[in-house]
Nucleic acid binder design. Structure first.
Length: 526
RNA sequence: CGGAGCGUAGCGCAGCUUGGCUAGCGCGCCUGCUUUGGGAGCAGGAGGUCGCGAGUUCAAAUCUCGCCGCUCCGACCA
């Protein structure tokens, strides 16, 4: 009874992991916790004996190291033998699959269909839109040889697919009756980055790119705004990450777009993360690619387009918004395993405990539940392991619980440990998961509010950027000169010109002191 | 792209300054027994092209040159 298929999956996933190290090292993935340093968590002090305990670099000691510790420790990703590329491991990929599932359903609700286009783009096609190729040229790898011969025409590896998809759209769109055309593809793209960082900036990354064609500007703009709203909804509801929604400045816009809408999140180190973008492309691509339709009035007109995407960077956002010094903390809605059951037994109680666990697993079948019945680890080891992996809820079941007809329920986000009567577990578990989801969003939202400041001058902005950082609201007159100057002096960029409920009124331009200009969000960005 | 550092067993490191026997240590892994409510104990065991390529030398993990990769800190980007 102790072996089940999902169980062996978890075993396979863990193959090759290690978490301890010797005394005496310095820069390290896992740092030695000093002898007799008590492992303190929520008032629980343990491990008083001399023992080596793996530790993640604390966030406030070195946030970057903490981040990479979590990425590798939670087995989300590993470095690949290709420069700048990561391997997304099963646990990380399971999160990605849940992101895909949630977004894909939302896309389809708005009438979008999935398709797939080639990864290789002939140079002649890629080069058709001038701004587009100019923006991406430095980051595009080219295939020049194949079949043992030099190719007649170089093939670019897609950094984004506007041109190749548009080329196909030109064949498919003939009449206004073919519009709107709403297509999405899940794929990976490649951008040859100078400096890479797991999930946040890798040479190849997983994403989705939606591409749509419309009859006029109004309809296309509506679609671009609709999709940024889909992102906002998903990221806030499912990933429990609050975002600011707004418009990108000219310099931060997508190469070839008229307008770029963005959702911006704030990480725990006070830096901003662009979590998703949606572009109104105008008819620029349509003009050069010949995506034209015959309108009711008998005239041939170019379509108005949009494109929009999010990437596996969202996983980086999850880590940096919710994680703590014990590792990853996952919102229940996205967690591959929502409830882990850890049996605690001796030889004489083994069968009873494992039997009860199997029963729990059946009772909790509506949730994503996993019984960790591995023989080779102690319960304490498993507690740490599942906390590092971010599992929202843990159920502990041992002989004492059997006697009292109860289980222990432990929340990952707060560490709270509560005995629950067996009969109430199913209800309490799903209620607690709902509470965790809500509380995690609330906590992240409060963090953002506590770390959103106002600045009246470049000096004030600079002081904030040198200190605790965060979102800084300040006036901006709209000129690229002032934007560039502010960036040069403070390192902060304009994350967005907020709209909707995120508007913050007006102020004085931080750089040129022009009065009554809109307030925008400044931040150091990833 | 600049500055700094690193690359020796699956992971973390020592050895390198001053070249020399069989390259060590901890964790992990394997076997056995005892264990199991916050990373268990004992015993035995397996595991290495010392990042890659040249060079110097009787002899290179160690010295020289080149290349590759990674990490951290700054400038550019989903």
């Amino acid at each position: 009874m102790t072996s089940r298929t999902d169980c062996s999956r978890y075993r396979a996933e863990r193959a090759g992991s290690t978490r301890c190290r010797n005394e005496g090292g310095t820069a390290a993935f896992f740092v030695l916790r000093g002898r007799r340093a008590p492992f303190v968590w929520k008032g629980v002090s343990t491990l008083s004996k001399e023992s080596y305990v793996e530790r993640i670099t604390p966030q406030d000691e070195n946030f970057s190291r903490w981040y990479t510790d979590v990425v590798r420790g939670a087995e989300l990703a590993d470095y690949a033998p290709v420069r700048g590329c990561i391997v997304v491991r099963p646990h990380g990929y399971a999160i990605w699959e849940n992101i895909q599932g949630g977004l894909d359903a939302r896309f389809k609700e708005t009438g979008v269909q999935n398709a797939y286009f080639p990864m290789l783009i002939p140079e002649s096609i890629f080069a058709k839109e001038a701004e587009h190729i100019e923006g991406f040229a430095p980051e595009v790898p080219w295939v020049t040889h194949a079949g043992g011969e030099e190719l007649q025409e170089r093939l670019g590896i897609r950094p984004s697919s506007e041109t190749i998809i548009g080329t196909m759209f030109a064949k498919w769109v003939e009449s206004y009756r073919d519009l709107p055309l709403l297509i999405n593809q899940w794929c990976s793209v490649m951008r040859w980055e100078k400096a890479t960082y797991p999930f946040l900036r890798t040479s190849e990354f997983l994403w989705q790119e939606g591409h749509t064609c419309h009859r006029d500007e109004e309809e296309a703009r509506k679609r671009a705004e609709m999709m940024i709203e889909v992102y906002r909804d998903f990221i806030e509801e499912t990933l429990a990450i609050p975002v600011a929604v707004g418009l990108k400045s000219e310099s931060e816009k997508f190469a070839g777009a008229i307008d770029t809408f963005t959702v911006e999140a704030l990480m725990q180190d006070g830096r901003a993360l662009q979590a998703g973008t949606s572009h109104y492309l105008g008819d620029g691509f349509a003009e050069v690619l010949g995506i034209e339709y015959l309108d009711e009035d008998g005239h041939l007109k170019p379509v108005h387009q949009t494109s929009w995407g999010v990437s596996h960077r969202l996983i980086g956002g999850l880590i940096m918004v919710h994680g703590d010094n014990r590792g990853l903390v996952l919102p229940p809605a996205i967690a591959p395993v929502q409830v882990v059951v850890v049996p605690i037994y001796r030889d004489d109680t083994r069968d009873a405990v494992l039997g009860a666990c199997e029963q729990l697993e059946q009772e909790l079948a509506d949730l994503r539940v996993h019984v960790d019945d591995r023989e080779e680890h102690t319960p304490g080891w498993k507690f740490n392991e599942w906390e590092l992996r971010g599992t929202p809820l843990r159920v502990e079941l041992g002989p004492r619980d059997l006697e009292n007809d109860q289980v222990m329920l432990v929340r990952r986000d707060t560490g709270d440990k509560t005995p629950i009567p067996r009969a109430e577990l199913v209800t309490t578990a799903s209620e607690t998961l709902d509470a965790i989801q809500k509380d995690m969003y609330g906590k992240a939202r409060k963090f953002r509010e506590d770390n959103t400041h106002r600045a009246e001058s470049v000096d004030e902005l600079d002081a904030l950027m040198k200190g605790e950082r965060g979102f800084v609201l300040g006036g901006w007159c709209g000129s690229s000169e002032c934007e560039a100057k502010i960036k040069a002096e403070t390192g902060a960029t304009i994350r967005c010109l907020p709209f909707g409920e995120h508007k913050y009124g007006s102020g004085t331009c931080l750089s040129c002191s022009k009065q009554n200009v809109p307030a925008v969000i400044f931040a150091r960005a990833y």
